[in-house]
Write a protein that binds this DNA or RNA. Structure first.
Length: 283
DNA sequence: ATGTGTTCCTGTCCGC
DNA sequence: TGCGGACAGGAACACA
């Protein structure tokens, strides 16, 4: 599923199709995803112009001319498909509807944006634009990892006294926004920090080093998403899932790529989720 | 307040 | 080819 880089890639892919464009017709094909959709969602979307497409953590925020903002979360399996628009040099018609196409936005000019989510852990809601930051799903989210508020002093303070493993702490959206299982594994591998270490017991110098590593891991993934956007989107209009190479995630049994390490990537389970890390160099 | 386990849902993959 | 189980990129929620 989408973590911050994938969500940002989806957002960027949607900008040329949605920003400044009017939703001619919204189709809502079921009453809910993870939670019930807001009342009359299709009516409140139809006829609105998308004035801006923003992102906060893993949420895409579509500001509407009505003064409301559509809040979108992709959950584990949510995907956005674009059809009927000029994609690169090709023109695509709308493909046949697929299972789990839950929300379809027909845009003035003929483009279509389809939200498909097999597992339905995704979510959509509407909130008055000035109150989006106070929305219950967003209010307690921590700083954006690529913003100025996420810095060395902040992270040290946020983890102070925490007995939970650093892996769990970095997954906690209240501490830092947007990280998920993949990029936490990747960041800890690069920073050579053992994911089992208690967050509050890690030397401040190591936490300082972790901050730019997190930024780098995310920035590089966004960059990879950007390049995949140019190629992949032309193929079938699906946004956000791109080829990316990981050093630790999903590589159980493979040699550790850290130079001169010679270790092997192992897998453990922490709070019910797989952690991939090098048992040799992540100390 | 903090930490941990459960839960929502479908699809895919792997071993027998 | 079928079947069962493990697993999947999230995170709210209930409970110790």
């Amino acid at each position: 599923m989408p973590e911050l880089p994938e969500v940002e890639t989806v957002r960027r892919g949607l900008v040329p199709v949605l920003e400044g464009r009017r939703i001619a017709q919204a189709h809502v094909n079921r009453p809910d995803l993870r939670w019930p959709f807001p009342d009359r969602m299709a009516d409140r979307l139809t006829g609105q112009t998308v004035t801006a497409l923003r992102r906060r953590s893993k949420y895409i925020l579509a500001d509407l001319s009505s003064g409301e903002t559509l809040i979108i979360h992709l959950g584990m399996s949510g995907r956005m498909l674009i059809s009927g628009a000029q994609l690169g040099q090709f023109h695509h018609d709308h493909p046949a509807p697929e299972k789990h196409d839950h929300v379809v936005l027909d845009i003035d000019g003929g483009a279509r944006v389809t939200f498909n989510d097999a597992r339905r852990f995704g979510a959509m809601d509407l909130a008055p634009t000035p109150l989006v930051e106070a929305h219950r799903l967003i209010a307690s989210i921590g700083p954006e990892p690529l913003g100025n508020a996420f810095n060395e002093d902040y992270l040290i303070a946020a983890l102070k006294g925490r007995m939970t493993p650093i892996k769990a702490a970095l997954l906690d959206q209240r501490i830092v926004a947007g990280l998920g299982n993949i990029y936490v594994c990747e960041a800890l591998h690069r920073a050579r920090i053992n994911p089992r270490h208690k967050a509050g017991r890690i030397a401040p110098a190591r936490l300082r080093a972790l901050v730019p590593v997190i930024r780098d891991v995310l920035s590089e993934a966004i960059e990879a998403g950007g390049s995949s956007l140019r190629d992949y989107r032309q193929a079938d209009g699906e946004l956000g899932y791109f080829q990316h190479t990981f050093r630790a995630y999903g590589r159980e049994g493979a040699p550790c790529p850290t130079p001169d390490c010679g270790g092997t990537i192992g897998r453990i389970v922490q709070s019910g989720r797989s952690t991939f890390y090098c048992t040799q160099c992540q100390t």
